[in-house]
C-alpha cells in the first residue's frame, strides 16, 4: 500500500520532547480534518508511546526516539514510534493494564491500555537489547 503522505522525525530522548512529538504528529494529521476528539486521542496515544521510549526504552539515558508517520487512503493514519533501547521481554505481560516496571516513579501501568482504547489498532514488536517499535493505527472518520 502506497502512502499519500509521510513524515519522519527523530529526536533525543528528553522528556521535554514529549510535547514536541504530540504537536508535530497533530500538525501532520491536520490535513485529514480530524475532530477535536480524534486529535486528542492521537495526541494522547503518541504521548504514551514516546514517554515509554524515554522512560523505559532508554531508562532516561541518552538515546534517539524515531517517529515514522504515514497517511493512507480512506484517512488511515499509521504511526510507528520506535526506540533502540532495552526492549521488552514479555510483551503480553507488559500490555496488561496496571502492569509497570516503574511503580516507584508513579507510572500507572496504563500506557498500553490508553493506546488500545484511543486508537483502532496497536501493535508492539520488541527485542531485548535491541529496542521496541509500537505501531498505532487510526482511521479518521470522513467529514460528517
Amino acid at each position: 500500500m502506497k502512502s499519500i503522505n509521510e513524515m519522519h522525525i527523530k529526536f533525543p530522548s528528553k522528556s521535554l520532547n514529549e510535547g514536541f512529538a504530540r504537536s508535530v504528529v497533530s500538525a501532520f494529521v491536520m490535513e485529514l480534518d480530524p475532530t477535536i476528539a480524534e486529535l486528542a486521542d492521537i495526541k494522547t496515544a503518541v504521548s504514551e508511546a514516546v514517554t515509554n521510549c524515554i522512560v523505559h526504552g532508554y531508562r532516561r539515558e541518552a538515546g534517539v526516539v524515531y517517529i515514522d508517520a504515514y497517511i493512507y487512503e480512506d484517512k488511515l493514519v499509521v504511526l510507528k514510534i520506535r526506540d533502540k533501547g532495552v526492549g521488552i521481554e514479555d510483551i503480553k505481560e507488559a500490555m496488561k493494564p496496571l502492569f509497570t516496571t516503574a511503580a516507584d516513579e508513579e507510572r500507572a501501568g496504563l500506557g498500553f491500555a490508553v493506546m488500545q482504547s484511543f486508537m483502532d489498532k496497536v501493535k508492539v514488536r520488541s527485542a531485548v537489547g535491541k529496542g521496541t517499535t509500537v505501531t498505532l493505527e487510526k482511521k479518521i472518520v470522513p467529514t460528517r
Binding site: R22, A40, K43, T44, S47, E48, T51, E105, E106, R107, A108, L110, G111, A113, V114
Partner: peptide, 13 residues
C-alpha cells in the same frame, strides 16, 4: 488542556 497516563499516576500518588 491535556493529560496522559502520567496524570493518572499523579492522581494515585
Amino acid at each position: 488542556s491535556f493529560m496522559d497516563s502520567s496524570g493518572i499516576g499523579l492522581i494515585m500518588g
